[in-house]
Design a protein around this nucleic acid. Sequence first.
DNA 1: TAGAAATAGTTGCTATGACAAATATAAATA
DNA 2: TATTTATATTTGTCATAGCAACTATTTCTA
Lengths: 149, 149
Amino acid sequence: MSSSILTNSYGTLIDRTLRLIKLRYLQTFRAAGIDITPEQWVLLDKLNQTNGVSQNELANVTFKNAPTVSRIIDLLCKKGWTKRSRSPQDRRSYSVSLTKEGGKIVEILLPKVAHLRQLGWKNMSEEDHLIFIKIMNQIYENYEEEIIE
Amino acid sequence: MSSSILTNSYGTLIDRTLRLIKLRYLQTFRAAGIDITPEQWVLLDKLNQTNGVSQNELANVTFKNAPTVSRIIDLLCKKGWTKRSRSPQDRRSYSVSLTKEGGKIVEILLPKVAHLRQLGWKNMSEEDHLIFIKIMNQIYENYEEEIIE
DNA sequence: TAGAAATAGTTGCTATGACAAATATAAATA
DNA sequence: TATTTATATTTGTCATAGCAACTATTTCTA
């Protein structure tokens, strides 16, 4: 293995790019006059795809942990964009769903988010995109299976 | 441009991989018996490379913002690994440097971090690594120049 | 079936990061 | 030189994330 992998801190690069992506999302949402963060958007978007799931399921599909989802849903409920209802099958869990207001927010923001995704891949090919996803997932798998000494 | 770019949320993938990387760093540091976070490590490592720089310079090279660097240096000073001294040339800024203790910490952790970097690139080539860095920086540039509508 | 173990969710604590406002000092300018 | 402007740093507030401890409920098991 070459030395550049050992000496270059790619974590810092990933970190800075991810923070810029999130910032651009936030600015775009603000410019649209909607007070929502990128993380809140992730949950709202997921609920739009699969309405009525539990917080636990939301946590799994968005790779977030339970306390984080709990707090973000709190905020979304306060804004009137989601609502919780106790699941009759399992009274420990909630069924979380979009309100009509929440649905409108998604409708407004979806095209803007699509535009943002396009911007990120400017000057790159579809192949670049596929390689990038593959490598990102490979790094994840490499660390996932690793047992710490 | 193909539609998969529009429908896949690569931000979520980057987010989950970055969080796993940080978790593995944290676990490795804990396993070594050293109470330090990945972000604190980034600053300590940078100080080891360029000792005596200002917080502002630290912020620039690590892509962090000033308040974050200020608070992390606070923590590192409390742990006795760094110290601040007022710069005689510019009395607004500090010269931040590693203490002897801080140097020892870096010495212990450097090989472990090199090992972690290798782990992340398991099953991948040096070329994969270069492509990845190139794409990550291209995404950054794409968003950097973008003016929000 | 009663008690133990597991699961869904919440809350408290700490760290990081973004933004805004504040202080102290330096640099530029009229 | 006096005043304005810019810069380095700090502090406050909020959002996200991880961990641990807690409650309520469900599932497993002796």
